[in-house]
Nucleic acid binder design. Structure first.
Lengths: 160, 160
DNA sequence: CACGACTTAATCGTATGCAATAGAAGGATG
DNA sequence: CATCCTTCTATTGCATACGATTAAGTCGTG
């Protein structure tokens, strides 16, 4: 192995370790900040994400919610049932297509929108980083995500 | 509410939604790329992280591993037991302090180091973004993480 | 030395998360 | 209109992940 390829490999190891772990642990840290903000409302962060999707566009199917959040029905079905158990949403088979299940906010679920108004501001302030820098990260993460998805699909096809 | 504060609130909602979800979904996408790379070795991504820590510094206690990965003993104990079940590590009570459990790589666990050499390069290439840009994200995420931790601690103290 | 405070790992209960599979419903094709 | 194929949700089994608690060991202080 040449010195140059050694250096390149070392750089890769460091970047992989750094960035993957950055994502892993920053994601984790975000969850820790959300937890006490959401606890008074009795919902978890993934449940809050589902509600956020519904606040933007109500009466979606399970599949449509999953598309937006990159989650499978095996994750969403029990999660949504818990939301239903708390009286925040209602599940109903679609009349037109009985395979689909439509998830609709209840009055309580819709009203909770008002109880979370402070959260986005809390988070953005908690980031402690000026807006333009956040935008830069947003942009790069978008590119990375697109590239990773392509990679995952390539591997799934077998041409690793 | 003034027009200005309305605009500020909207910006916060968008930034919160964007960035938290960026982290959520990019983290998810990373996992999807690792999965087929690690599957032939029979380990999961969190298990790989534990092995990576041990490859860098063997014979650590459960607590020391948790510190590095931000994981609790309730997560690590069963995970490490699974690694032990696969013959990759060995758990042993510390002679000096019987409260501690030391985790040590077996020959097989140490040998696996060679089987993962290609992975960092795969990941770095899969990111599809030039190195300097990755460094920028690394830096900003570090700042965000530090700020979020401070925020989480403040909330834990009750001064929300 | 005894006793309480602290540390450490393990356990328990709950909630994600995924892959694989099942099962019901819709659609296409002959 | 019967059969196959696809679509969509639900179920199952496994692996994280955390908070709260427990249990065992260590240490400091009176």
């Amino acid at each position: 192995m040449t010195d140059q390829s050694k250096t390149a490999k070392l750089a890769c190891i460091q970047v992989e370790a750094m960035l993957c772990f950055d994502l892993y642990s920053t994601h984790h840290a975000v969850g820790q900040v959300y937890k006490p903000l959401l606890a008074p409302l009795g919902v978890t962060y993934p449940q809050y994400l589902v509600l956020t999707v519904l606040w933007a566009s109500d009466n979606l199917t399970v599949g449509a919610i999953g598309e937006r959040l990159y989650l499978e029905s095996s994750t969403l079905t029990p999660l949504i049932k818990r939301l239903e158990g708390q009286g925040l949403v209602k599940r109903k088979r679609d009349r037109e297509d009985e395979r689909k299940v439509r998830v609709k906010l209840t009055k309580a679920g819709d009203a909770m929108r008002a109880d979370v108004q402070h959260i986005p501001t809390c988070l953005t302030e908690a980031f402690g980083v000026p807006m333009p820098e956040l935008m830069g990260v947003h942009e790069t993460l978008g590119k990375i995500r697109a590239a990773l998805k392509k990679q995952a699909e390539a591997e799934a096809r077998g041409d690793a």
